[in-house]
Nucleic acid binder design. Structure first.
Length: 290
DNA sequence: CTTTGCACCTGTTGGC
DNA sequence: TGCCAACAGGTGCAAA
């Protein structure tokens, strides 16, 4: 906070829109954008920086100009803009944001792409770490390599206790890493993996194959309830996440264990512990989670 | 096949 | 105050 007065970004520019999205943040962005963009036509595209996980396609402007946006869908953490039968895929990576402005705002560092719509509004893609992606797919993107091998959506009936139990048999990988693998279920990133496992009373380090049927059933429920609660709160803002209007989420205030090492478990008051799994921080209550 | 670790990047933070 | 290592919400990919 104090730092804002000394080395904060240019005064007046205020907040630099960064974001690090798990599914709730992507869904919040989708819900914020959809009413304003669906039915609109793309008037122009400006590309300022093609460097993302993969280079922004050279043909993007030619592909998009004049096209109408028929729908804005989400698959896992990918946003899917439907244009006729074709698809624009947008992934926000760790620090990407997609914001809508009524009129084109001033450029700032790390702005990559502007999409000008026929009502004069601008969609701006901004991504400092450049882990995100913007891809063009001729046709429905369901068969695209990035989407083809994804597991079920968390709210899809196909994600259920029986299949989770079956899919984890024989797996030695920790349940936390398995949950984040986008194969058992999609959209559960580092924050919500810890939170879902806390709610289910399962220790993150337990081998996935050691889940009982009861555990699997509990985990399906808590993955859903955790994600639903986070969506209802507009996502989690730990540092900089903002939605399509620049508003932060508030789920961080509901986190039971994430980023709370040493603080009391909200259920039993035992100190929350932190460990590292696959290079990522994991948080859990050593008493409530076995 | 499963699992692990690295790689891609910039920006912020905390410890010395 | 300054410097530097560690870390940050994702995930594709090579290698074991």
């Amino acid at each position: 906070m104090v730092g804002d007065l000394t080395n904060g970004p240019r005064p007046g520019a205020g907040f630099a829109p960064l974001s690090m999205p798990e599914l709730p943040e992507v869904e919040t962005t989708r819900r914020g954008l959809a009413p304003a963009v669906v039915g609109r036509r793309i008037a122009a595209v400006s590309i300022y920086d093609r460097r993302l996980r993969w280079p922004v396609p050279r043909a993007l402007e030619r592909n998009l100009a004049g096209r109408a946006i028929d729908a804005l869908d989400r698959r896992s953490k990918y946003l899917l803009f439907r244009l006729g039968g074709d698809t624009l895929i947008v992934h926000l990576g760790m620090t990407g944001s997609l914001r809508r402005y009524p009129a084109a705002p001033r450029r700032s560092p790390h702005d990559h792409v502007d999409v000008l719509l026929d009502d004069g509004s601008t969609l701006r893609y901004h991504d400092p770490r450049r882990f995100g992606a913007i891809l063009w797919v001729a046709g429905d993107a369901a068969g695209h390599p990035l989407l083809a091998s994804l597991g079920p959506e968390p709210f899809d009936p196909h994600f259920d206790a029986e299949s989770l139990y079956r899919e984890t048999r024989g797996r030695r990988q920790s349940i936390k890493q398995a949950l984040m693998g986008n194969h058992l279920v999609v959209g559960v990133g580092n924050i919500y993996a810890s939170e879902s496992l806390f709610r289910a009373g399962i220790r993150p380090t337990r081998a996935a194959g050691r889940l009982t049927r009861r555990d699997a059933a509990a985990l399906v429920d808590t993955v859903r309830s955790t994600l639903a609660d986070a969506i209802a709160r507009g996502g989690t803002t730990l540092r900089d996440y903002v939605d399509s209007r620049g508003e932060p989420g508030t789920f961080q205030f509901d986190c039971a264990v994430y980023d709370r090492e040493g603080l009391p478990c909200p259920r039993c008051a035992t100190a929350v512990r932190a460990v590292r799994q696959g290079g990522r921080s994991t948080y859990f209550c050593p008493r409530c989670q076995r």
